[in-house]
């Protein structure tokens, strides 16, 4: 598989430089160049395909133009060899680009460990960016250069989609669950963010700017005018004020409900029905909003009050951040 990709890449790099940038936005990350290579390979094969089809059509049209009204035409009903060729060659080509597309997609979807996390909250019609430090900024945010960044995204109302053309990355933001995407910005600069899922009157105005800056500048920005609490500290306050403390401990002791200690990231987390789950954002989200969907082994249903409609998206995010700190 690897030699194949290497081969494809050399083909593509050569064609890519010939084709210029093919109008794609400036490349902001490594994956973007992978996407562009794939794109230029497809552009060239497509161009060739169109030359054969359209060129063939025009050539035949000229060559076999009707001469007299009584022209005789041959009776050719089929030709096995030809038909095999023009089914088989496209098939092989399609499978090649499929595999290549798969590889690129896989790189986009596998979240790197230890990525810098930012929570994104979408609503009609703005983007809020929440950092673990407690910093919140709207429609305008900073990320450090050269460090993988992971966005954990939620929506308060309808579907939105987070799109950074220069990173060639896009992900729908779906109300009722978290979706994620990641990228590693290789160059400092300002990048355009679009909302690409139709969301109503001001859809086309739901824009944001991303500033990629060197790590020290980023740290400075992060600390700026920071008065409040970190996200996790906000979560701890909610843990008390929302009454979770009555049933959940943070030190491993079992109360009415399971302890939160060591909960985050555990993989063989067993449910009452025998199924085992991996504890991630979406699992915790479900457990809080709709606890009876999955009952933890050893506990019974109906005890934990469902929080659907009682917690805002921000509060949920803060609580989850708090749970993450309870190693």
């Amino acid at each position: 598989m690897n030699w194949f990709l290497a081969l494809m890449n050399t083909v593509a790099v050569n064609t890519a430089s010939a084709a210029g940038k093919s109008f794609m936005p400036p490349v902001g990350t490594e994956i973007a160049s992978d996407v562009d290579n794939l794109y230029s390979f497809l552009l060239w094969t497509s161009f060739l395909g169109c030359v054969i089809l359209i060129g063939g059509m025009i050539f035949f049209a000229v060559k076999y133009k009707r001469r007299t009204d009584n022209d005789k035409t041959p009776y050719i009903s089929h030709n096995m060899a030809l038909e095999f060729l023009w089914s088989f060659i496209p098939l092989v080509l399609f499978l090649v680009v499929f595999a290549w597309g798969w590889k690129v997609y896989h790189d986009m979807r596998v979240m790197p460990e230890n990525a810098f996390e930012i929570h994104v909250q979408a609503k009609q019609w703005q983007w809020d960016f929440m950092y673990k430090s407690g910093k919140v900024s709207t429609n305008d945010f900073f990320v450090p250069v050269g460090i993988p960044v992971k966005l954990v995204m939620a929506s308060e109302d309808v579907l939105h989609s987070f799109y950074i053309p220069s990173m060639r990355i896009k992900q729908d933001v779906v109300p009722g669950r978290y979706t994620t995407l990641w990228f590693k910005a290789d160059k400092t600069g300002d990048y355009q963010i679009f909302c690409t899922e139709y969301c109503g009157a001001a859809h086309s105005a739901m824009l944001a700017k991303m500033h990629v800056v060197p790590a020290p500048d980023f740290e400075k920005w992060l600390q700026e005018n920071e008065e409040g609490l970190t996200l996790a500290q906000k979560g701890e306050k909610l843990y008390n004020s929302k009454g979770c403390i009555a049933c959940h401990s943070t030190d491993g002791s079992v109360k009415v409900g399971p302890s939160w200690k060591g909960l985050w990231g555990s993989t063989g987390h067993t449910m009452a029905n025998g199924k085992s789950v991996t504890v991630d954002e979406n699992y915790i989200r479900e457990s809080i909003l709709n606890p009876n969907a999955d009952i933890v082994k050893g506990f019974s249903a109906g005890l934990m009050p469902a929080q659907q409609g009682l917690l805002t998206e921000d509060q949920l995010t803060a609580l989850i951040e708090y749970i993450k700190t309870l190693k």
Partner: peptide, 14 residues
Amino acid sequence: IMLATVGLDVHFHD
């Protein structure tokens, strides 16, 4: 075909 190529469609979608 370009749009069916999943890694490329992420950029082109919508």
